[in-house]
């Protein structure tokens, strides 16, 4: 009874408010209200796969403006074959994956939303076998499937670019403009080359690297061997960006070791030498 009375009272208050300001509401343009609602909705929704692919192109373009593609086609094919072998076990096997080697002596690998994955020629030079390469590529696949960079882009753009996106989409236009490209590029560049992703994101990708390499039949322990090798390079210029953007190799090894469930698996050192060395 009390609830009914309360509901009636609320209805009367609401009715009175609408009646009293009915004239004002009549003056509101329904199309503008709908557009505002769409803008608000667009600004908070997730990116579509198509938008993610476009953001990936922006970030890939920024990476390739920094380091060019390596010209050794044999190495490029090899990285593509190993990468696609692993991607089939990922959470997003149908993504249009692109794997490539970029030319720089620094030891690192990068990924973008939408599935562009780059490993540096400097990192390849430090690897001993295909299992190590697989682990590095799998780590980057993890960043893509877990949308780590995309989350940073969304976080950084939600108030400005997000609304622009909504307005552009609502008018049926191309959604990315030069200014948005610059903002996205800056966020991604900052994360990839200067500050790095969060420790949580890196740990998650390392965990996925172990899962994918094990699932694909590579020996996951080779990932630790690679990181141990990097420990020896700490302090060198080749390690500068990796050190700045990732937890230390020792810390990563401590995280990864308990995750390894099997010691078996392929190493493929000779095949690696055939394709890379």
């Amino acid at each position: 009874m009390r609830r009914t009375a309360l509901a009636l009272a609320l209805t009367m208050v609401a009715g009175s408010a609408f009646a009293q300001f009915g004239d004002l509401l009549k003056k509101l343009d329904p199309s503008k209200i709908a557009k505002t609602a769409r803008v608000a909705h667009e600004a908070t929704r997730d990116f579509t796969e198509g938008e993610e692919a476009d953001i990936g192109r922006v970030v890939a373009a920024r990476i390739l403006a920094t380091y060019p593609l390596a010209t050794n086609e044999k190495e490029q094919k090899y990285v593509t074959l190993v990468g696609n072998t692993l991607a089939a076990y990922s959470a997003r096997p149908t993504l249009e994956w692109h794997f490539a080697v970029i030319k720089t002596p620094i030891v690192n690998a990068f990924s973008t939303p939408g599935g562009f994955i780059f490993v540096t020629s400097g990192a390849l030079a430090e690897m001993q076998n295909e299992a190590e390469l697989a682990a590095v590529l799998a780590h980057e696949i993890g960043h893509v499937t877990q949308k780590h960079i995309l989350k940073e882009v969304k976080r950084g753009n939600v108030l400005s670019a997000g609304v622009d996106l909504a307005q552009s989409t609502a008018s049926g236009g191309q959604w990315l403009n030069d200014d948005m490209g610059r903002k996205i590029g800056e966020i991604a560049y900052n994360k990839l080359f200067t500050t790095g992703l969060s420790r949580r994101d890196e740990d998650e990708s390392d965990s996925i690297a172990v899962e994918l390499t094990e699932a694909a039949g590579y020996r996951p322990g080779e990932y630790i061997r690679f990181l141990e090798n990097l420990e020896k390079l700490e302090g060198t210029s080749a390690m500068k960006t990796l050190t700045a953007t990732h937890p230390s190799p020792a810390s990563r090894i401590a995280t990864i070791k308990p995750l390894i469930k099997q010691e078996q698996g392929e190493i493929l050192a000779k095949r690696f030498d055939t394709w890379v060395k």
Partner: peptide
């Protein structure tokens, strides 16, 4: 997947040719 704008080029400092 055939989604996104393949061939997209922005003037934002990126190397879209690459």
């Amino acid at each position: 997947r055939g989604v996104g704008n393949s061939g997209m080029k922005l003037k934002d400092g990126g190397d879209y040719e690459a």
